[in-house]
Write a protein that binds this DNA or RNA. Structure first.
Lengths: 208, 208
DNA sequence: TTCAATATAGCATGAATATGCGATGGCTGT
DNA sequence: ACAGCCATCGCATATTCATGCTATATTGAA
């Protein structure tokens, strides 16, 4: 029986990425593990890697970028890749966004080791795995406040980090026009006329 | 020659804490490594441990608590303990506050593995170690002398509330030109190119 | 008292944003 | 099959922002 033996990690914190490498090798019986700190490095690797089965552990908050669009790009390059979010994020809106991108797993960095192993088993049998902590957060999430779509929230993250339309477009692999559309729809929903107002709104609603 | 062989880790993310355990054992030649996720668990351990030499790796952002007060408590319980901040924080103000608590080391989670090893060597010879990334952030923070004048801060408040130049000018009874001047001086000091970056900076520095 | 910092104000110009008004496909649920 | 939302992309235009350069008055410290 064939098992997944190759995994990659994307985490902007080098020490964390490297430590996770050791963890996956030692505790999850994965033979080859490589880690990357920037989205582009991972994407470049994936292009060379081809379309074999591969486990990808993705963080959500990355240095100057966001895991969501990386996920889209990964799946486009290698449809056979199994992508698992492994993140410290806890905001319901953010978790809901991740889920809508249909990852193969959703793991908290605060979860037990056993949950990673359970996740790997589930993913191997083509099931989507969500750790207990996130399951709880998502179930108790009231839907009333969240009028923002995942893509909108992602774009919002970039703006909150001071990125312009062009920079955000580049990071998300989108057309600048699309970024503008997302931004304007958010501003319409939130009743804002400027980016500054939008950021104030986002802070008040814990979206960033 | 006696060497430090016992280390403990405090990180609220279990997976990260456990991974760091492996890292310290495998790459830093530390025999005994234990990790904790809550400050109280660590403190309890320290009371039982006594006053022998011990390495402590502390995160800054913890679940419902903060590494600073933990540091104080650790030093009170065991003056021989060497405490190293290992954190993902990057805001100059936050780093500066950590330094004021006089830890034995200041390491970024984004640093190279070699810097952890260098830190251990430095700490062993009673030196305080700061990783390059943090050294840079702290030094450029001083040069930037980001002391905002009262008028500048006042203007900043209006911008953080989503006011435009014209609106701010109206509220402050100033010429729009003057408002622009205040804004641009702040952005020059903080090294920002846009309002969004300015607001991010202001949040990181607790200016608003 | 000289000097540095602050506060005030202006002109000019290119870059970015805000907004009106579209359009096409892909899903989801009924 | 169809409505409704989501994501994607486009054009055109008015407004605002970002920034180079300049300038005066006040104030407090050296």
């Amino acid at each position: 029986m064939k098992t997944s033996r190759h995994a990659v990690i994307l985490d902007d914190q080098k020490i964390v990425a490297f430590s996770l490498e050791l963890l996956l090798k030692r505790e999850c019986r994965i033979d080859i593990v490589q880690s990357f700190n920037r989205g582009n490095d991972l994407i470049q690797f994936l292009r060379a890697f081809g379309k074999e089965e591969l486990l990808v552990f993705l963080d959500y908050y990355l240095q100057d970028e966001n895991g969501l669009s990386i996920l889209t790009e990964i799946k486009r390059i290698n449809g056979a890749a199994k992508v698992i979010f492994l993140t410290g994020a806890t905001a319901p809106a953010v978790l809901a966004s991740m889920l809508q991108y249909r990852p193969d797993g959703l793991l908290s960095k605060s979860c037990e080791l056993g949950e990673i192993q359970a996740c790997l088993a589930a993913v191997k049998s083509r099931q989507t795995f969500i750790c207990r902590e996130f399951e709880y957060i998502l179930s108790s999430n009231d839907k009333r406040a969240e009028t923002f779509t995942p893509r909108e929230i992602e774009v919002l993250q970039y703006f909150s980090n001071g990125y312009s339309v062009a920079e955000t477009a580049s990071k998300t692999f989108l057309s600048p026009h699309t970024v503008v559309t997302h931004r304007r729809k958010m501003m319409a929903k939130a009743g804002c006329q400027t980016i500054a107002q939008m950021l104030k709104y986002a802070h008040e609603h814990n979206l960033i």
